[in-house]
Nucleic acid binder design. Structure first.
Lengths: 352, 352
DNA sequence: GACGTGGATTAAATCGTTTAGCATGAGGCT
DNA sequence: AGCCTCATGCTAAACGATTTAATCCACGTC
């Protein structure tokens, strides 16, 4: 009933097939489908109608072979359960998909070997760019290897110093020192830092911010108050418990990230103390969950969604012009005061 | 110093180039790289050495053109900020990448139109399979369109009834009725349901579980106690506040998911009540955050990581054999009792 | 009627791989 | 010597699109 022109027609529907059916060349069909001005209006409409009726779906793999452009962006993160990376991924996906790009996802799990394998696989799909938050310990050469076939590389959140690739992230030194200043203003003098490790740029910078914050108020840096480690709930909890057992325990802590801080809040509660009153905690990132904790977490908003979008923009710009000078987008973080911090109790104030 | 054989050599390194350099045909090189037994051991090693030295990276797009296999799996979710979907995505990614597949990600944002566009774009990359959690309101035809060019389709979490595609998820009817029974056992008689809507299979099933749970204990279903809506923190909070304002308020609620439940916990606290003592809340999914709330959330563990892996397996199986009979993997959920539920206060017990 | 003009279409090359089928040559066997 | 087999490698044809340069054709102009 619905015409013989739109018959079932067996196999896959390709440009070839459409061309034959329309009595045109593949060249014309290809141009018509992409709204080229050189093909006559009438022809264009006819082609597009038939393509739609036939359920034609372009094979972008084939097209990419010719055009050397895939519209794929390889995104390499080391963790996606951590909500801060989830929020980043969501921002990246949205910005890229709005620009007609599609995300090919690889998760490296904070392991350079695995990361190398995963990114190597992604590279086989010839993404137009990589957006990477490199695993701790990633070297300049690991990243260079990605760029070897002319793929743009953008770093996000973390960076490999001296790699020379674009970067979008937050000013971690300033961020953590804001946190420290807040605690000092509340009267705290023994302030710990929980989480962070040397192999990641974020670890180094946040430690630097911690030290800078202390120094700015004339406080000495005491290495026993730095509970180095990964940014997990587990580490946060264990670390705060260890700190509380010290002979001269701190009264407050800044954390490497919010996850750590949540763990610390749990540890404090488990020790029978009340966060905000007995011990102050500042998180880092301000993920969605932070506002919902009990007590709500005082933290530093690093503007993850914004720098996610910035990273996407950097990638698009570099794809458009591979020769452009290296660019760094570093956002200024904001302190968000909630209920997990409060005035220092009248603990004995040590000199220094 | 390191030999003239490994010279810089300009442009992209392709099979062609390797073949020329080696004095072999592309056929031999291709076979050698894939460890085909028809090429001599010695040749194979020589080829692989040179390939490595040259930094050869196969172009999988080109290969796929020939083999009609991309090793890409299109994953379409409607939300990735929601931790339950993040956990799902992580499980999918891990299982697929272990099987040599790569995830091409699309986020539909609970909007059928957008979902159609996104999945259409993914389809252009000719994934070997789609794993989809369809947006509410998705019809059988929307899904069929995906399968049209022979791409395997697997549904996860949610399903479009009657679509005939494989499915992996949790038994929602049983799950919610477990939650209801738990509350009944604690003495609750007026039990609300927060969240869920008719356009998603999960919404229908969980409502059904709620009703079945009530019926199993001879309790009547009261439509004013179903606060239909999306599974968000916002909805959970508003819903519980509305329920508390009812002339004859409930003493407990089961929720569509954990996010809803978190919102409800906030609402209860904001109303000056204590969850677990004054009002009981049961969540759904048991995402990581659930154990950390204050009070820790009683919830139903739907085994998301397990059915994520199951979905990946179904996809791989269907790729291997497109003719195999449709399969549904439906896991039995477990109740996880924590602190957000407790005995009903001696409120007036209504008959019925 | 020759010729230029310009709009519409097409032929053919190309991208980088895979694979069916064929070619070659060295032994082994009768 | 003649024939077969086996191991190895090669030729050439796909796969499905894009793009450049060429062709075709109708029309107006002088």
């Amino acid at each position: 009933m619905d015409g013989d022109r739109i018959s079932a027609g067996g196999g896959k529907v390709t440009l070839q097939r459409l061309a034959v059916e329309l009595g045109l060349s593949t060249a014309t069909v290809s141009l018509a489908l992409r709204d080229s001005p050189v093909v006559a209006e009438e022809t264009r409409l006819r082609v597009q109608d038939v393509a739609r009726a036939r359920g034609y779906v372009a094979n972008r793999g084939a097209a990419s072979l010719r055009t050397a452009r895939t519209n794929i962006i390889g995104v390499g993160l080391h963790d996606i359960i951590n909500p801060s990376f989830t929020e980043l991924l969501a921002a990246l996906e949205e910005a890229l998909s709005a620009a007609g790009k599609t995300v090919l996802l690889g998760v490296g799990q904070e392991d350079v070997t695995r990361q190398t394998r995963i990114l190597g696989t992604l590279a086989e799909y010839r993404p137009d760019a990589f957006i990477v938050s490199p695993a701790a310990g990633t070297g300049v050469d690991d990243l260079r290897a990605l760029a070897i076939s002319g793929i743009a590389v953008v770093q996000v959140t973390r960076e490999v110093e001296g790699s020379g690739f674009d970067f979008a992230g937050s000013d971690d030194v300033t961020g953590v020192s804001l946190a420290v200043s807040h605690l000092v203003a509340l009267g705290h003098r023994r302030i710990a830092m929980i989480g962070g490790f040397d192999a990641a740029s974020t670890g180094r910078r946040r430690l630097e911010g911690y030290q800078a914050g202390l120094a700015a108020h004339g406080l000495a840096y005491d290495p026993t108050l730095w509970a180095s480690g990964r940014g997990t709930r587990e580490h946060g909890r264990l670390a705060v418990e260890a700190l509380l057992r010290l002979p001269d325990p701190p009264t407050a802590a800044v954390c490497f990230n919010d996850l750590c801080a949540f763990g610390a809040l749990m540890g404090i509660q488990a020790a029978g103390l009340t966060a905000g009153a007995d011990f102050s905690i500042v998180g880092y990132d301000d993920i969605g969950e932070a506002a919902l904790w009990h007590p709500a977490l005082t933290t530093v908003f690093t503007r993850i969604p914004e720098y996610g979008v910035a990273a996407a923009k950097l990638a698009l710009a570099r794809i458009a012009d591979p020769q452009r000078p290296m660019e760094r987008t570093v956002l200024e973080p904001h302190l968000v005061v909630r209920a997990s911090t409060g005035p220092a109790k009248s603990a004995k104030h040590r000199a220094g």
